[in-house]
Design a binder for these strands. Structure first.
Lengths: 248, 248
DNA sequence: CGTCTAATTGAACATCGTCAATACTTGTGG
DNA sequence: CCACAAGTATTGACGATGTTCAATTAGACG
């Protein structure tokens, strides 16, 4: 029953959690980031509920009506864009504090799919409520704009990677980015357990799963990494950075 | 003096134009799109001025302080992202009604460069003013959010292209997209004069200029296009569409 | 009209993708 | 608890696609 190619819909729509941004462990990485307590209180009013998203289920899919922005509270997601012709690609991986669903605003319909790669929890921010409170609270408004802009800058970075990097550089850039974000969340800065398959990494990087696998093996042979299935340990962080810098 | 690799700064900062969105020829494609007259009047209040941007000059560069969103009124732009290591890539081409500078919101600094590919005119929308009026005018607010979201969706489309398409598909997708947008602006739907070099196209598509050139030649040999330097005429629009559809 | 940039084209080469065989994980049911 | 099955990862050989380098031609602009 688990692990279907088309993830099953999520049965329980809303879990009745108590939401309290002001005491949330990830508030420095999330929407409240940098806001004074008075604005964070407003933020709490926006959040409708938390929602559980079991592993391998879709939080939303392409074509779904857009009603809310979601913020990852715990867990790990991937988003995939799909074109009309069936082509699809992983466009990003999201972890605690990161936003899901900004694509839906323009036409009120999601154009991508968000799937949990492990049992996860998200905060549901109904979009109408967000716009409403943004009108009354300047800092909240600015914060939201900053996060949309950050997504645009992030996307530009992905384009740069896809357009200019070779396979090895892409894989290394992916790893460095992932570990930087994990470090910001208090995880080890030298070792990761990847939540995604080689195929998903490859899709994100515009490579085949074989090329991703071979690249990991080569980086291991060169002594920069230790790779054991999904567990990656960085042995030479400096040299890893150089893999990208030396190119141009 | 002209055509330096680093475009010269724009000497006259603000041209004293009278701004009137309500009578502007491109209002259906621009920020006012779909808004009722009463909101368009508010929009006019946001626009500080129009500004002339001569060919091959930068409207803004990476590192510049972000103060305003710009909207292309006439002409044609490219935006390029540049990484710390010197790597850079064209991330988009903008024409009348399209926005420039959304990347600057997050940190108050531009992360990309916008260069005019022909003598152009932009409307300057000071960002503080935009946020201020957005708080008072719901539809304006929503419109702005829609346009940021549209940029995110557009970027996802570019990623999909860079990650999954072969050279010929990329070039064709680029042409189809360009002509669709030109058609929406009342230009011929069968012939274009490209404003950018093969190198700029290649950078955008993640290909070398030689591959772009060869691909044009092949599409011409196959009778789908007629290419004479920068002038491209589409002879078989249906078959052009099929170049992309048949892949998956 | 001449110079500089841009575009085309060819040949050799590198990188990555495809196909295929094998090994390793993980979860499930006997 | 073990064995099996399905999914996931590794590795090799080969081939396709796109890059690099180089030479030539065509355009654009002063």
């Amino acid at each position: 029953m688990a692990r279907t190619t088309i993830p099953p819909l999520l049965p329980p729509r809303h879990e009745p959690f108590k939401v309290a941004c002001s005491t949330c462990g990830i508030r420095q990485l999330c929407l409240p980031m940098g806001l004074p307590p008075i604005d964070i209180e407003q933020l709490e009013r926006m959040v409708k509920a938390r929602r559980l998203v079991p592993r391998n289920t879709a939080l939303f899919s392409a074509g779904d009506a857009f009603e809310a922005i979601h913020v990852v509270r715990t867990g790990f997601f991937k988003t995939s864009a799909c074109a009309e012709d069936g082509r699809d690609q992983v466009t990003g991986f999201q972890m605690a504090g990161e936003l899901l669903g900004l694509d839906g605003i323009v036409d009120g319909v999601h154009t991508c799919q968000a799937v949990a790669l492990e049992d996860s929890q998200v905060c549901v921010v109904p979009y109408e409520r967000l716009e409403g409170l943004s009108r009354d609270f300047e800092r909240l408004q600015h914060q939201f704009h900053r996060l949309m802009s950050r997504e645009i800058v992030r996307d530009q970075g992905v384009m740069l990677m896809l357009g200019t990097m070779r396979a090895e550089e892409r894989v290394v850039a992916f790893l460095i980015n992932l570990m930087r974000r994990l470090r910001a969340r208090g995880f080890s800065s030298s070792s990761v357990v990847l939540r995604m398959t080689r195929e998903e990494i490859g899709s994100y990087l515009g490579l085949t799963l074989e090329t991703v696998s071979r690249t990991f093996s080569r980086l291991q042979d060169d002594g920069l990494l230790e790779v054991k299935a999904r567990e990656v340990r960085v042995l030479k962080p400096r040299m890893l950075l150089q893999v990208i810098r030396q190119a141009a």
